[in-house]
Amino acid sequence: MTNVAPLGIFGRLASQSAFSESADELRRRVGEIPKGERREIAGYLRSGAPIIALMGYSEDVLGNEFFCPGGPGIMSDGHFFWRGDTADYVEHYGIGLPEEFIAHGTARRWIAPALSRDDIIEIDDRLGELRRAGAL
């Protein structure tokens, strides 16, 4: 379980101001997920386990369509990790996600696994290692 992978651009631990610097990269990926698939994928992302909960909220850096309490926090399904506001970007803009994640979610029928307390601690420890290494 400790080999959790970042979910592309959303697999970064970043403040709102730092994440807003990714707006151009996000814009390039708008519409990559068809409208008919967005809700199911967003539901999966929202049902991930919170790993790093942060106070505050994030604001939509593309068009002010939403804000997300705890948006800069990190969630996981035990295989990938992502920002808490990822589901909103997928749902509102269809921001593309890595093919490996799409295949993973499709194979799971977009039902996120329940993570145990030990799983969450193990993932948090791994993310701590990545932060200390400067990889997050």
Score class of each variant (00 low, 15 high):
M1A: 11
M1H: 10
T2R: 13
N3F: 06
V4C: 07
V4F: 01
A5Q: 15
P6F: 12
L7S: 01
G8I: 08
G8Q: 03
I9V: 14
I9E: 03
L13H: 08
A14F: 05
S15C: 04
S17C: 09
S17M: 13
A18R: 15
F19C: 04
S20H: 04
E21L: 06
E21A: 12
A23P: 07
A23M: 08
E25F: 08
E25D: 13
E25L: 08
L26I: 12
R27K: 09
R27C: 00
R27V: 10
R27L: 01
R28P: 03
R28Q: 15
R29S: 10
V30Y: 04
V30Q: 04
K35R: 14
K35H: 12
G36H: 13
G36V: 14
G36Y: 09
G36Q: 10
G36L: 07
R38D: 10
R39P: 02
E40F: 00
E40L: 12
L45T: 11
L54T: 12
M55D: 12
G56R: 01
G56W: 10
S58M: 02
E59Y: 09
D60V: 08
D60H: 06
L62I: 14
G63T: 14
G63K: 10
C68Y: 01
C68F: 02
P69E: 07
P69Y: 12
G71Y: 00
G71W: 02
G71R: 06
P72T: 14
G73T: 02
G73K: 04
G73P: 09
I74S: 01
I74V: 14
M75I: 06
M75V: 05
G78F: 03
F81R: 06
W82S: 01
W82L: 03
W82I: 07
R83I: 10
G84S: 07
T86R: 00
D88K: 01
Y89N: 09
V90F: 12
V90D: 06
V90L: 02
E91A: 11
E91V: 09
H92D: 03
H92I: 03
G96K: 00
L97F: 06
P98K: 00
P98Y: 06
E99S: 09
E100C: 03
E100Q: 05
F101P: 08
I102T: 08
A103R: 13
A107F: 00
A107D: 14
R109Q: 15
A112G: 08
A112N: 02
A112L: 07
A112C: 12
A114W: 05
R117C: 10
R117E: 15
R117W: 06
R117K: 12
D119I: 06
D119K: 02
I121C: 01
E122T: 13
D124R: 12
R126F: 13
L127G: 04
G128D: 14
G128N: 11
L130I: 03
L130W: 11
R131D: 09
R132M: 11
R132E: 15
A135L: 15
